[in-house]
Computed example of a mutant assay.
Amino acid sequence: MSRPLTFRMMDTHAGGDVSRIVLGGIDALPGATVRDQMHYLRDDADGLRKLLLFEPYGVPEMSVDLVVPATDPEAAAGYIIMEVMGYPIYSGSNTICTATAVLEAGIVPKQEGVQRFTLEAPAGRVNIEARVENGVVEAITCEGLPSYIDTYRATIHVPGLGEVTYSVAYSGGFYALVDATELGFHLNRDEERELAECAHRIVEAIQAERGFSHYTLGDVGPLPFLHFMGPVEQVADDFYRSRSATYVHPGVICRSTTGTGTSARLALMRHEGTIAPGDRLETISLRETGFIGTFTGTREEGAHTVVENTITGKAYVLGHTEVVVNCDDPLVACGGLHHILSARHG
């Protein structure tokens, strides 16, 4: 028998999306930046992602965040995001969960009141504001990526659906934005499977027709995400609310509304002239959880007006685990693990 491999993990969730935070037991990764280290995992060591997102350890609806030493001297820690579709450079819900985990694990000493620190994502430096009350992390506010509208109200023929109107935003990934009401949805939990099937058809049709290029990143692959938008309700002079649902993978609607989906909504609302700097939008999920996006300003980047924003939410700790990886188990594939997961106890 081979010696089991072990590592430490904290399970968390924000808005219902479970993020498994890997805190120890992983060998140092090569790469001058966290982005480089993400590329190494993606190209040469994808075993950790597959291990924790599929049987017997997990399910595709989860995410994994690997905490690594920061390469940016201003950052307290780095983190690499792993999801069923691959390695996104940024995620709001994963950032909220990781920021909470580094506080709970003592990587960043927890302080009462409001405290600020910086994390390093593959997308770069992310400023964090944490609100701690009686030792409990009650809220995390993190920067959303600068977001913009690439396409406004295009139409496409989707087999089985007919003509569908959509917009496309970039907010950490390219999102198709569609009006849920136009497609006959109320965004209730009992629609979850139908929403996933509908989104998959639309995304496949868009992927077959066209690609998208970011103004600095270039080609970032086929459009992966779709965000269903419910009607917008104004609940105060500077505060709006909307039911929402985000599709990320065949069969998978996120439990939360997602931070990047919320950033995409802010970009669309600014494009349509319905919000001003300082306004907030709360997106409400199928499970009645919410994130609050705040529109903080704009700047011009070439041909695009880029929306600066923050995302606020709360993460909950679900458990602390020492994961044992037994490579003799026929359900466990260890082929992308041995060179990153040492036999030392984390």
Rank of each mutant, 00 (worst) to 15 (best):
L48P: 00
R189Y: 03
G144R: 06
L337A: 08
Y57D: 06
P159Y: 12
A264M: 08
S171K: 03
E191H: 06
N326K: 14
G162H: 11
S285G: 08
A245Y: 02
L48I: 04
R287C: 02
R201K: 03
I128R: 04
E308C: 11
H186Q: 08
D27Q: 13
Y215V: 15
T260H: 00
L187M: 08
Y170A: 14
H39M: 12
N127H: 14
S244D: 01
G162L: 12
F228S: 13
V168I: 14
V203H: 07
H304N: 05
H13G: 06
S91T: 15
G336M: 01
R42K: 01
D150M: 12
S19F: 00
L223F: 13
T298V: 14
G160M: 08
L51H: 12
C254F: 01
R8Q: 08
G24H: 00
V22P: 00
P159S: 09
P73N: 07
S63I: 01
R201Q: 06
A105T: 04
H339T: 15
I128W: 03
N326P: 09
E143D: 12
D65H: 02
A105D: 02
R255E: 03
T6G: 03
V323Q: 06
R265H: 15
G230W: 11
I128D: 06
M82H: 00
G15L: 00
N309W: 05
G297D: 04
E83M: 13
V248F: 07
V252H: 04
E182S: 03
S93K: 06
L268C: 04
R131Y: 14
L161N: 08
G259K: 08
D65L: 11
F185P: 07
E209A: 15
S256Q: 07
V252A: 08
A180W: 03
L286M: 10
L66T: 11
G273Q: 10
A176L: 03
D27V: 11
